[in-house]
Design a protein around this nucleic acid. Structure first.
Lengths: 209, 209, 209, 209
DNA sequence: GATGAATGAGGGTTCATTCAT
DNA sequence: GATGAATGAACCCTCATTCAT
């Protein structure tokens, strides 16, 4: 009795890699099928059309990313710590998941600020909530300055995403690291209430690997 | 002697609008020719191929944007003022130039952090220099904290670009304005040396229109 | 001993409706299976292939139509009466059996005059015989003019079929009724021996409902 | 200086023949292009898509048929003569234009009684008008019985079309001829006012070739 | 400068049919 | 009897690019 194998994980992986390497247009449905050792026709048994294959693939990958960060953040209790660990774990994940990074880089609309035309609204919202909760907590506990949490959340989320996407995997990693550190410092400087600035002293090492 | 009318301005405008509306792939060479009341064949007299048409068009538009900001910045002398006016005039320009904004939104690679594969390296560099000079001056005059100017320049430049692109033209303008103000404050808070924080009081109105 | 339910009646009905609505080409085997709450694969247990499914379905429906007319005709004895009742009952049946009508409308080859390539030769022959017998009887009894019965049978049969198919179910029913009456009158005028023309006075009402 | 050759006549002919031989579905756009010694791509320069190619082709052919009949009818003045010559010339044309006949045979919807969904409404209307005018004239001149001209026109038109289409080219031509003669006689018998029945004596030979 | 026509290389989709379980 | 999966063969249509005139 064989275990019915769920083909979607493989499917999403193959698909993500191809879209990353060749972009949406140049990736053929036949390419994807070929990588899975199945025929074009059969691929259409699992997926409605090329566009949907693409969106499902990305959604799957984004969800995994978000879950990974969420898990890391939940281990800390201090907002500043949470903020740092969030930034670091998001960075760590995308550093190692190059295909996802490249796909996003080619399709900037994946992170839109307008929920209307956001094909991944749900996933993106869930991810933003992680950040929003940290800021909210920080403001309540007075370690962050009293800000308009929603606005700052939106801003920081979109900025971080694009920043991570564009920074890693390219140029030399050393300069990427410095860039990341500079950005993190700048933003934390901005966030902190003046009385708390001693927090700028780095408690969590930026690059844990 | 007849005045030979230079067709490129019209060409760039038509092209930009179409690429903005339909994206690179869906915009056909015939669309562009049609908008200019010429035939496909004739368009190839002016332009080598579709890709080059696209890049020339964007380069043209980016250069105009940069010149507009440069002109505004040169009118101020104080670094904080310069920083503010830079942010505001860049924002003002893109707010009114929707096609450019939409084109960039569809092609995130227009602003790359790696100069290697940057098709608009020259123009982007020139634009970044404007920002870099402001920061450098600010650090020298000790109104900004002593930072790694190149890193921060790179970070802020890319972050601002993407932020502007994604924010304006969509959602309601009121929320865009608030978002912009929050971002500007956050970044200035981060930049300012502690002794200068009274500068946070807004001297230049954020929204001059 | 379980009562094995014969699935063919349902199968034919579902099939007929789908072919009527979408035509042969656009009706997929999966559509038919779906309407019967079975899978494509299982449908192939009952039917050899799509083409055969189509032909069986039509043959089934044509046979029922023919039987209905036959039954009505057999109740009369006078040829003129028979002719009229034949026309009327055929019309009545098809008026109420819209799917059949639409299928025939989409596939004119169902009624071919050449028996060679007639996929429904047997059924069509049986139907034509009903008409032929009426004419023969009419000629023998001298109420119809002395004609070449086979030719006229063939002509009238095909003409009536196409006429019924094309007339009913569409446009407004009132005009259809008038059209039918005009056709019937024209043909009866043609058929009648001159001495019998008083028969044109309608004994059987054209529209008995 | 070469004369610019209009490619449409060849195009329509090639197209008509292929659609006649293989039907709409089985005729490939590539088949048509091949027959014209051009590429698929170039065919799309002349024609929007397959469906439109088909409809233009048929419309062209129907129009030619109609014109041919119209020309013949216009040479006569007596309604009975006109009626006969109309029937005969229509028959003669379709007898020799087998591709058109076969195309129509495969697509019964070409002659619809409902103008709504008639893709060839205009052409069909023009053709019906020829018949309608004859009947009207005949009624006015009292050689036809006083009928509802519109109804009878519609009936006779659709009946004749289908009859011609289905009769010729198939089976043996001898039986076709007899069938046609029988039909014509039947219909004329029906049309004639009683006082004019001597007209049934055939003045125009049925088969002039 | 301008045009109409031609080319050719794809790529996405659909579906009838089969078959192991 | 029934199912889910797999196959494979078509076919339509798009478009960037070229070029003779």
């Amino acid at each position: 009795m064989t275990i019915k194998t769920n083909k979607y994980p493989d499917l999403y992986q193959a698909s993500l890699e191809l879209f990353a390497n060749f972009g949406y247009k140049k990736t053929t449905v036949e390419d994807v099928a070929g990588k899975l050792d199945m025929t074009k026709g059969n691929l259409y048994f699992y997926v409605k059309n090329k566009k949907q294959l693409y969106e499902q693939t990305i959604n799957h990958a984004l969800t995994q990313w978000k879950d990974h960060v969420k898990k890391a953040v939940d281990k800390k209790s201090d907002p500043v710590e949470k903020f740092r660990i969030m930034a670091i774990s998001a960075k760590g994940y995308i550093e190692k998941n190059d295909p996802l990074r490249r796909v996003i880089m080619n399709d900037p609309k994946i992170f839109t600020l307008s929920p209307t035309e956001d094909r991944f609204a749900e996933t993106n919202q869930a991810a933003m909530t992680i950040l929003g909760d940290i800021l909210k907590q920080g403001v309540e506990e007075k370690c962050f300055y009293p800000m308009d949490v929603d606005q700052v959340t939106t801003y920081l989320f979109s900025v971080y995403m694009m920043f991570l996407i564009k920074t890693y995997g390219r140029a030399n990693p050393r300069s990427a690291k410095k860039l990341f550190a500079a950005a993190l410092e700048l933003n934390l400087r901005g966030l902190l209430a003046k009385t708390n600035e001693e927090n700028l002293v780095n408690k969590t090492p930026v690059n844990p690997n």
